[in-house]
């Protein structure tokens, strides 16, 4: 049961819904509902899905950040899946409590990885998101260690965790825990959200990060 993951996809393009459904099905993620309106994540089978894959641009001009906020406030685990890659919107989604932000240029592996991580309440940091975090110049950004920054930058540049691990002479799991620590640091700042609080609590419990680091 623990491996069985259910998801709901909100996207205004049928082809994207079909594509995501196919990608998820090959990795044993069940797509229980999909539609072009955030309503599918609140009603019927979609209401109980583990993960919500949310497109930020549902036909309208303004991004669907209010839909994201409502879902997150309800404790839902959301992976944002968007055309846009500008840093500002990416950071805003993290601030609201999305567990991951993927651009549509990023492929099946990242989407499946993000959905599976989100189902467990974990963050997932694909390269574009790493780039947005590395380029974050906001005053409220958390303090990252030089090593964390280097992992973030090299992951953004190479899109290969093996490459990052070999280059920095660390193990693959160390690369992952650096990325996780960074996300926990981000989760600990700004507005409160259940998903963010859970990320921080779990990281402290696992000894990934100390209270002093936050």
């Amino acid at each position: 049961m623990a491996d069985h993951v259910t998801a709901v996809v909100v996207d205004d393009h049928p082809v994207v819904r079909a594509g995501v459904a196919h990608w998820l099905s090959t990795e044993d993620v069940e797509l229980v509902a999909s539609g072009e309106d955030p309503g599918v994540a609140w009603t019927g089978p979609g209401a109980t899905a583990d993960v919500v894959v949310l497109d930020l641009h549902l036909g309208g001009v303004a991004p669907a950040t209010s839909a994201l906020r409502k879902l997150v406030e309800d404790g839902r685990k959301v992976v944002v899946y968007s055309m846009r890659a500008d840093d500002e919107i990416v950071l805003q989604c993290l601030e609201l409590g999305a567990l991951s932000y993927l651009t549509k240029a990023e492929g099946a592996d990242h989407l499946v990885g993000a959905v599976k991580a989100a189902a467990k309440g974990q963050s997932y940091t694909p390269p574009a998101l790493a780039g947005a975090l590395a380029g974050d110049r906001s005053e409220t950004r958390p303090a990252l260690s030089p090593r964390e920054t280097e992992v973030l930058v090299e992951w953004f540049q190479s899109e290969s965790k093996e490459f990052v691990a070999q280059r920095l002479n660390i193990t693959l799991s160390t690369v992952n825990s650096h990325l996780e620590r960074i996300r926990v640091k981000y989760a600990a700042i700004g507005r409160q959200a259940p998903t963010k609080a859970a990320l921080v609590a779990r990281a402290i419990q696992d000894g990934l990060i100390g209270l002093d680091d936050l």
Binding site: G131, A134, G135, R137, V153, F156, Q157, S158, E159, S160, F163
Partner: peptide, 14 residues
Amino acid sequence: SVLRTATEVRVAVV
């Protein structure tokens, strides 16, 4: 990739 932080500009190709 181009990364522009507060202190540096990094251009990389992998």
